[in-house]
Design a protein around this nucleic acid. Structure first.
Lengths: 242, 242
DNA sequence: CTGGTCCGTTTTGTGCACAATCTGCGGCAG
DNA sequence: CTGCCGCAGATTGTGCACAAAACGGACCAG
């Protein structure tokens, strides 16, 4: 008699091998999309209910997200969507410039014309961005904008760097959510298209130039001198009083 | 009557707020020092006993280390000291070049002469490296070598980048442990001293040049064409057989 | 009205017990 | 002798129960 074949047990709500990865992605996307603004409390019980898993699984997920600095864990208080400081925001953008410079350098080293697959994926992505732009779907535009940079990093061929950049992109979203000016309307789609065109047919260095300006532009649209909502730093306000 | 002041409860073995951080550091250092070579099994029960904490705390620590790619978690098999592939090793060194280039650029932008504190700390560190070198204390030399790069990153003033580099340095240690040539003797102390001298008094760009050569040299001392111990890639060996 | 204390409720933290899975060894059929 | 099956022991995974801590409102004194 054979041992009972272990029946595949996937259908159960929220279980299985990749359940944690799924929840991490789900929460991560919600944060990147700004559906969960910085400072939002992430109660374990609620999340467990929403995703149909046990509380300890949620706890594990929150620990992972905290490691990526996307959520902040305060002992005995719980988990909150991270609210970066102005300093941290600047550092994140600086780090992005450092890494994306290397990404673009790698891309500029690939022989022209670009491989068909790369070119096709880039153009398909641009199309989706412009589609979202026309439709006025701001949320989709934000997500796609991040994915564009991620796509470039993937093509650069260094998975380690790409992984680091992925975190930084998520944290950029957080910084933008925390410091965005009321009036700002980043037309990333446009700048992305110009970058791809420069990469495919521009003179050497043109793509790099555009990318650096693009990143500067995104950062410049933030109001990094203002304090993030409700987090007035009393210490700095009274620092020079006697 | 006031509420009872919460008595400090630190003395208990392994407990308290920072217990996990302590264990993470402890295991991290052991790995960086190569006392725990790649592939070593990290059994939960044993670690719990060693550090005098419960198994679930160890479990949490292992999850954190896994996130940093310093240990590998295999479902239902346990935790092992990570054994990087040759490709991953190359990627890590590439990523280090990218980040440390930015670090050195920042350092070269600081006005000369260097601030006293920076200069003093660098020289103190060099002294310790040379001391370890003379004493033939290879383990200390390895640890100090990593700390040197960490020190530079801290001075560069971007804590985010410094944190990313910290992970990469740990992973470099793993790569070195996995791929080091028998005969290699990296005289990092020497190269570090020359770098500091160039940074303090050399012409612009000299320090950068030395740092890039130094990183290349470290990577070149690895045998990245050999397979890591015992992990023969059967697929590639039989790839061209019919 | 202000400030403070107390206490019930809610939320987070931790240990424990049990379930699931893997590993190694011994026995047995061919 | 070889290969396979199955069992025993050890190790990891997960849910649960309880402990600890924080929040919020009520109450009260000044």
């Amino acid at each position: 008699m054979k041992t009972v074949l272990s029946a595949p047990r996937r259908a159960v709500r929220g279980r299985g091998e990749g359940a944690e990865a799924r929840i991490v992605r789900s929460i991560g996307e919600a944060i990147a999309d700004r559906r969960l603004p910085p400072g939002t409390k992430l109660a374990e019980e609620s999340l467990a209910e929403v995703f149909g898993v046990s509380r300890e699984r949620v706890r594990k997920v929150l620990l992972l997200l905290a490691q990526r600095r996307v959520v902040t864990l305060i002992p005995n208080r719980g988990a909150f969507v991270a609210k970066p400081t102005a300093r941290e925001a600047r550092e994140v953008f600086e780090a992005r410039r450092v890494i994306e410079r290397a990404v673009v350098e790698a891309l500029e080293r690939t022989p022209r014309p670009l491989p068909d697959e790369m070119s096709a994926k880039l153009r398909a992505h641009l199309a989706r961005e412009e589609e979202a732009d026309r439709a006025g779907d701001r949320m989709a535009l934000i997500r796609l904008s991040g994915q564009f940079h991620q796509l470039l990093a993937d093509f650069a061929g260094n998975a380690t760097l790409a992984g680091i950049l992925a975190d930084l992109i998520d944290r950029s979203s957080l910084a933008i959510a925390a410091f965005e000016r009321r009036s700002s309307h980043s037309c990333s789609a446009n700048e992305h298209r110009r970058f791809v065109e420069a990469l495919e047919a521009g003179p050497p260095g043109a793509a790099m130039q555009l990318m650096m300006e693009h990143l500067d532009e995104v950062e410049r649209q933030l109001d990094l001198d203002a304090r993030p909502d409700g987090a007035v730093d009393l210490k700095s306000i009274f620092a020079d009083r006697t």
